[in-house]
Design a protein around this nucleic acid. Structure first.
Lengths: 121, 121
DNA sequence: TCTCCTTTTGCGAATCATTCGCAAAAATGA
DNA sequence: TCATTTTTGCGAATGATTCGCAAAAGGAGA
């Protein structure tokens, strides 16, 4: 796999804002449409396979976030749609459960939905 | 909300096999295409809003499962695509983390990916 | 540097799950 | 039964994502 100019540009966006999620379309905008949207999709899928990014489906679209440094997830506000990063706190519980079933865990996806501090009900 | 004949048929499928996940298309097939696919989609969304079903996105499509009796999740085998039901073991961890952030949890989605007993690598 | 081969990219079209608009049908309740 | 509200079927629209293919870029060796 080649770290081309385009791929580096995309990776840089993730590394410059470690707490953020990006959809393909958001990247397309941030990059000022300089990289073709199909290329962005292909790059995101590649990075995910390489373990650099994790993918979550939120509200029908795919979002990616950088996980090479720390493993984490997001809480999504149902009202204002803000996305709050949280450290992964389920690794142990998952491993325990999986080993009981003889299941070999490769990855997991956790998303929490509710209301943030400001939108509290 | 009316529990019409169609809605009851769909709900029955879930209640008769509590460990299974169904996509709209799977239900459409199981029901022998007697209920329009758009109606199935509408019913699934309704049941989810009512808290009867939970939704997970797996491999690009939505799957629903019955959660009124017990809260659970699935481990998905990357090789044979089998879906293994697991009890939810992250409720506490999530609540703890959320309360630290003043976040009011409404629901969460957890999916574990890896290799099942038979496909172990 | 030039050449060859492999990988990546852009473009436009295709795909596929899901949603929508609207008129007909079914359910409810007086 | 009649009137009103909700649900359904149908076909078309949507929108994110993927695909096929030819052109461009990258990398390795001479």
């Amino acid at each position: 796999m080649r770290l081309t100019k385009h791929r580096k540009q995309i990776l840089d966006i993730f590394m410059e804002s470690l707490d953020n999620l990006y959809s393909a379309d958001m990247l397309y905008e941030v990059l000022d449409k300089q990289i073709n949207i199909a290329t962005i999709y292909r790059t995101l899928e590649l990075f995910q396979k390489e373990g650099l990014l994790a993918k979550s489906i939120i509200d029908g679209s795919a979002y990616y976030y950088y996980t090479a440094k720390d493993h984490h997830h997001y809480m999504i506000c149902l009202q204002c749609h803000s996305k709050i990063k949280i450290d992964c706190m389920v690794h142990h519980a998952i491993d325990d459960t999986a080993s009981k079933e003889g299941f070999q865990v490769k990855q997991h996806d956790l998303t929490v939905y509710g209301y943030c501090k400001n939108c509290h009900k």
